[in-house]
């Protein structure tokens, strides 16, 4: 199946520090979430892991679905999604801000999140802004609203990056 993975410079994974080869199958001993295996994002997981470079990855073998990720015993980095860049990240952040302002800008307490998000974006911390938007939504309507805001973020990214269409 096709999934997505955020990697740093030199296609290095941010947590494991593994330098991914492009186009070669990488095998793990097992698919064990957060321990062993090839970890990747479904479309709905992407907003939780925003990072430097976004790659499309092909997964193979028995896939384990975890809370915010999927894990497979084999994976092959297919291509970097070059449309994922600073400009798109900022556009994503601006959309998050606009939506939060529309929904909560006139709501006591929650309107404070609008200013927080503005500050986060001004300092380039888009992942924090996206989290703050989801937190504002959660405070308005509970955990389901948190998830819905994250799904809105994922839908925006999927639309702009063509995720989930392969």
């Amino acid at each position: 199946m096709t999934a997505y993975k955020f990697l740093g410079d030199g296609s290095v994974s941010p947590f494991a520090g593994f330098r991914w080869p492009v186009g070669e199958w990488v095998e793990a001993a097992a698919a064990d979430p957060c321990r062993r295996g090839i970890h990747a994002c479904r479309v709905q997981d992407v907003p939780f892991w925003l990072g430097h470079g976004l790659w499309e990855i092909e997964l193979d073998g028995e896939i384990v679905v975890y809370q915010r990720k999927i894990v497979a015993p084999r994976g092959r980095l297919v291509r970097r999604l070059t449309d994922w860049n600073r400009e798109l990240l900022e556009e994503f952040g601006a959309g998050v801000l606009a939506r939060t302002r529309t929904r909560f800008g006139a709501v006591a307490v929650l309107s404070g999140y609008v200013g927080d998000i503005q500050n986060h974006l001004a300092s380039g911390r888009v992942p924090l802004a996206a989290f703050a938007a989801a937190r504002a939504a959660e405070l308005s309507g509970g955990p389901a609203e948190y998830e819905r805001e994250r799904l809105r973020q994922a839908a925006w990214l999927a639309d702009r990056l063509g995720l989930g269409t392969a």
């Binding site: 947590f15 979430p33 957060c34 321990r35 990720k69 992942p127 996206a130």
Partner: peptide, 20 residues
């Protein structure tokens, strides 16, 4: 040291994404 359970590990990493 890789001794956290999967849930805690994921929560730590999810936090690290947005916490500079």
């Amino acid at each position: 040291e890789d001794v956290l359970d999967a849930d805690d590990r994921e929560r730590v990493e999810e936090h690290l994404v947005f916490c500079d």
